[in-house]
Simulated scan of single mutants.
Amino acid sequence: MTTMTAVALRGGVAVATRDRVDVEAAVREVYDVHYGRLAGWTARLVSDPELGHDIATEAFLKLFREFAKVDDPRAWLYTVAANLVRDHWRKRGREAAAYERHEAGRDDFTPAPDLATTLTVRDAVQQLPDRLRVVVLLHYFADLPVATVARQLEKSEGTVKRDLFDARHRMAATLGGTR
């Protein structure tokens, strides 16, 4: 990826900036290489191809705006997409809870099915706390190495490894495995 940098003065301080044309070309190059996989990854996470494409597109729009600050576009994109997916899951959880509260007052209300018979790995990942969920999504689902995940989340590699260990134990307990 070729980018040209220029020096601009902002408030008397020299700041390196990237030429707008080169940013568009660089983001297009990243888009051509990573969009399909990112969109597929997010579509699987949210179980909706259209929403997955929307999330991937939003991640690329954010990349375009923040490109000058991004060192590793692939890792950055997956981190942003994971955060957007997490926001989606939170919203769905709030909507489901509100709907259930609304429907609970009705005479013909039937409770949700027993999760023990319908739980999947995706559900187990969704039940993880945010700090563990993002690490799992980036490492196992986006296939990023521990070092890259640590750098993106601004954590040490040891912390990321510990989070992965904790996440695996929690998911095993959730899915009925042994600790």
Rank of each mutant, 00 (worst) to 15 (best):
residue 154 E to W: 13
residue 102 H to M: 15
residue 168 R to F: 09
residue 119 L to N: 00
residue 148 T to H: 04
residue 163 D to K: 06
residue 161 K to Q: 14
residue 163 D to Q: 13
residue 118 T to C: 04
residue 107 D to I: 10
residue 153 L to M: 14
residue 127 Q to M: 09
residue 106 R to W: 13
residue 162 R to A: 14
residue 152 Q to S: 15
residue 145 P to Q: 10
residue 135 V to D: 03
residue 125 V to D: 05
residue 157 E to I: 04
residue 121 V to Y: 09
residue 97 A to K: 11
residue 135 V to H: 01
residue 106 R to H: 14
residue 115 L to F: 01
residue 146 V to F: 05
residue 119 L to Q: 02
residue 158 G to I: 01
residue 166 D to S: 13
residue 150 A to W: 03
residue 125 V to Y: 05
residue 126 Q to M: 05
residue 96 A to T: 14
residue 143 D to N: 07
residue 105 G to M: 07
residue 99 Y to S: 10
residue 151 R to T: 04
residue 124 A to M: 10
residue 143 D to Q: 08
residue 96 A to N: 09
residue 101 R to G: 05
residue 101 R to M: 13
residue 162 R to E: 15
residue 94 R to I: 13
residue 116 A to Y: 07
residue 143 D to R: 03
residue 118 T to W: 01
residue 94 R to H: 12
residue 160 V to R: 00
residue 103 E to W: 06
residue 155 K to C: 08
residue 123 D to A: 06
residue 126 Q to W: 08
residue 147 A to Y: 01
residue 93 G to V: 13
residue 131 R to E: 13
residue 94 R to W: 13
residue 141 F to N: 00
residue 156 S to R: 08
residue 124 A to I: 11
residue 117 T to V: 06
residue 168 R to G: 08
residue 152 Q to D: 08
residue 97 A to S: 12
residue 99 Y to E: 14
residue 107 D to V: 13
residue 144 L to D: 05
residue 90 R to H: 12
residue 93 G to Y: 12
residue 166 D to T: 14
residue 107 D to E: 12
residue 115 L to T: 00
residue 89 W to T: 00
residue 89 W to N: 04
residue 94 R to G: 01
residue 95 E to L: 12
residue 168 R to S: 11
residue 122 R to H: 03
residue 91 K to F: 12
residue 147 A to G: 04
residue 130 D to P: 09
residue 129 P to C: 04
residue 137 L to K: 00
residue 129 P to L: 02
residue 155 K to M: 14
residue 95 E to K: 02
residue 146 V to G: 04
residue 154 E to V: 11
residue 111 P to F: 01
residue 120 T to K: 10
residue 106 R to V: 10
residue 160 V to L: 02
residue 142 A to K: 04
residue 166 D to E: 15
residue 164 L to H: 03
residue 115 L to M: 02
residue 121 V to K: 01
residue 131 R to K: 04
residue 120 T to P: 14
residue 111 P to W: 00
residue 127 Q to H: 07
residue 110 T to I: 15
residue 96 A to E: 15
residue 92 R to D: 15
residue 104 A to F: 12
residue 167 A to D: 09
residue 144 L to R: 05
residue 130 D to N: 09
residue 88 H to C: 07
residue 137 L to H: 02
